[in-house]
């Protein structure tokens, strides 16, 4: 199994690169096509948040293993302005930008695990995981 890796997220090309990496690593551990697609889509949403709202940051891709079950964890970190009202940000349809307001809430539905920590003025950290 490959080790964890951290990729930069500063522009759109980085988002595309991160998506490709998540796709290849998801297929590698044997996630089904549907699960890979869900994870890559979640990655796309969260990476966009990091780039657009967080002012850039990183994504760390970590392999997970629990007996025969395998999984992949993605950690998005930025040092941006942070989110003041997390509950509001997680509401379907709420948007502070140009999207459909499904970024965070949608990403949460697409993954098995979802965690968000945000401090105003310090940044945001979103962790998601998908299990086989």
């Amino acid at each position: 199994m490959r080790n964890s890796e951290t990729l930069p997220l500063t522009n759109e090309s980085d988002i595309i690169f991160a998506r490709r990496e998540v796709r290849s690593r998801g297929s590698e551990i044997g996630l089904s096509l549907v699960d890979v697609t869900k994870l890559v889509t979640a990655c796309s949403e969260l990476a966009r948040n990091t780039v657009v709202y967080g002012g850039g940051g990183t994504v760390t891709i970590e392999p997970l293993s629990n007996g025969v079950r395998k999984g992949l964890r993605l950690i998005f970190e930025d040092q941006g302005p942070g989110i003041a009202d997390l509950n509001l940000a997680l509401t379907d349809g709420y948007t502070s930008g140009s999207g459909m307001g499904l970024g965070l809430s949608g990403a949460r539905r697409l993954c098995n695990e979802f965690e968000i920590v945000s401090v105003v003025g310090q940044g945001t950290k979103v962790t998601v995981a998908k299990w086989k």
Binding site: V34, T37, T41, E45, D92, M100, L102, S105, G106, L110
Partner: peptide, 14 residues
């Protein structure tokens, strides 16, 4: 649209 994409979109809420 690919099946996996369609399933994901629905799950996403779109």
């Amino acid at each position: 649209m690919q099946p996996a994409v369609a399933i994901t979109l629905v799950e996403l809420g779109l």
